[in-house]
Amino acid sequence: MADHTDTQLDVEELRTVVAGALELPVEEVTDEARFKEDLDVDSLISLEIAVRVEEHFGVKIDESQLTEMGSFQLVRELVEAGLSTGSAR
C-alpha cells in the first residue's frame, strides 16, 4: 500500500487503480462515465474497486458506500472525504 498520510489525492493514480479493477484502459475511466450504464460495472466489480482503493490508499469504504460509487467522480469524492477526515489508515 502506498503511503497516503496527507490529504492530497493524486487523481490520476486513483484513476489507474480504478481502471485496473475494471480491467479497462485508463482513458475509458472518465469523470463522467457511469459505472453501471457506461462501463458495465456490477456489484462484484464495485466491491473489487472498493478493495483496491482501500488497499492502495488506506481509505475504508464501507458496504453502504458501495452503492454510491456510480462513477469515477463519486469514488474520488469518497476517497477525498476519507483522506480529509482521517479515515485513512
Rank of each mutant, 00 (worst) to 15 (best):
F35L: 03
E77H: 09
D40W: 05
L44G: 06
G58R: 06
R76W: 12
S43W: 07
E23M: 07
E63A: 10
I49Q: 07
D31P: 12
L24K: 03
E37D: 14
Q73A: 15
D38E: 11
D42R: 02
G86D: 08
A50P: 12
T85I: 06
S71W: 06
E23L: 06
L78H: 07
L78K: 07
D42T: 01
E37F: 02
E23D: 15
V75C: 09
F35A: 02
T67E: 15
E23S: 10
V26L: 06
T67C: 05
I61R: 00
L47Y: 12
E54K: 14
D42L: 04
L78S: 09
H56F: 07
L44Y: 04
E68P: 09
V51K: 02
L44F: 05
T30N: 06
R52P: 08
V75K: 07
V41D: 00
Q65L: 13
S71I: 04
E23G: 10
A21Q: 04
R34S: 07
A81N: 15
E68S: 09
E77R: 14
A81Y: 13
S84I: 12
S84Y: 10
T67S: 14
P25S: 09
I61D: 00
V79G: 08
S84G: 12
E48S: 15
E80D: 12
V51A: 13
G58Q: 04
L66D: 01
R52I: 04
V26E: 11
F57K: 06
L47A: 14
D31E: 12
H56A: 15
A19E: 11
E68H: 07
T30I: 05
S46W: 02
E27N: 14
A21I: 04
L83W: 04
I49N: 10
V41M: 00
L66M: 07
E28Y: 06
T85W: 05
E63G: 10
A33L: 02
F35P: 02
A33K: 00
S87P: 05
E48R: 15
G86W: 04
P25L: 05
E37S: 08
G70H: 05
D62V: 10
D62K: 05
F35V: 03
M69Y: 06
V41L: 00
A81P: 08
I45N: 09
A50H: 00
V51G: 07
L44W: 02
I61T: 03
V79S: 05
G82W: 03
G70F: 00
E54S: 11
G86P: 02
P25F: 00
E63F: 11
F57I: 00
E32C: 06
K60C: 07
L44S: 03
L44K: 01
V59Y: 00
E23C: 08
E77F: 12
V53A: 01
S43I: 07
V41A: 02
E80L: 13
H56K: 11
S84F: 10
T85S: 14
A21Y: 03
K60G: 10
K60R: 14
D42A: 09
D62N: 13
I45Q: 09
E55V: 07
L83G: 13
I61A: 01
A81W: 06
D31V: 10
T85E: 13
F72A: 01
K60Y: 13
A50S: 14
E23N: 13
L44I: 10
G70E: 09
A21R: 11
F57R: 01
D42I: 00
V41H: 01
S64C: 06
A50G: 12
E55W: 05
S84P: 11
E23R: 11
